[in-house]
Design a protein around this nucleic acid. Structure first.
Length: 218
DNA sequence: CACCAGGCAAGTA
DNA sequence: TACTTGCATGGT
């Protein structure tokens, strides 16, 4: 595949969208649900997160105030299925405390700011690393912040498009330096990469039927 | 049975 | 700065 990076990234997107799209991420009803899901899915299969979210909903706890008021052990029990439940309880609580103490409890105000400022502030909260921060900026605040994850590394390094040892921010820059910032486009691109990784980039035999294999030829 | 999932932080050298 | 380890359930 020759040509510049923008061309390559656009062609990859087009191929994946033609195959799987549109996926309509993030699967959530509210920005707060996006935040919860982004934390709960850290190193965890999404299927197990859905159970936790459903549990919260059934207990009328799927909202900011309820999560703030729930005792930690109770919250931990409700999100048990998502794994690392003690750690994740602390993370969810620390996020809520941050909003309460710094934004008078207004998640809307917190999310309404400039994307880069928001990202930096998110990274200062215990339990929110670069991927979780970018998910919140992109899917909860609707600001263009490209999300990179383990599948992005695998897909792009196995094709020889990047060195697998580059940092998160370097891989993120690989996309944002070439692409025009566009929220729906970034949202769908990340979803398509996760879908592709999930289906074809787990074990090697599966790679044979990956739609991106056409890019190995030219 | 082993291995992995839509990471992150803390500890070590 | 660059590794390593703990966190933990549930699916394949």
């Amino acid at each position: 595949m020759r040509g510049n990076r923008l061309e390559l990234l656009q062609q990859i997107y087009d191929k994946l969208f033609e195959t799987f799209g549109p996926l309509g991420w993030w699967p959530a009803e509210t920005p707060f649900e996006v935040v919860l899901g982004a934390i709960l899915t850290q190193n965890t299969a999404w299927k197990n997160v859905v159970k936790a979210i459903d549990n919260l909903r059934e207990n009328n706890a799927l909202n900011f105030r309820a999560i703030c008021d729930l005792p930690a052990p109770t919250l931990a029990a409700l999100i048990r299925s998502s794994g690392f439940y003690n750690e994740k309880t602390k993370k969810v609580k620390s996020f809520c405390e941050h909003i309460t103490q710094n934004w008078n409890g207004s998640l809307d105000d917190f999310l309404a700011r400039d994307g880069e400022e928001l990202r930096a502030e998110l990274l200062g909260i215990r339990g929110i690393g670069p991927e979780t921060a970018d998910c919140i900026v992109l899917y909860a605040a609707y600001k263009p912040s490209f999300v990179v994850d383990a599948y992005t590394y695998r897909i792009f390094s196995r094709h020889g498009w990047i060195d697998e040892t580059i940092s998160y921010d370097e891989l993120r820059n690989f996309f944002t330096e070439a692409l025009e910032p566009n929220v729906p486009f970034f949202q769908e691109y990340h979803a398509l990469l996760v879908k592709t990784g999930h289906l074809f980039c787990r074990r090697k035999p599966l790679c044979e039927s990956c739609p991106l294999n056409v890019f190995f030829e030219k």
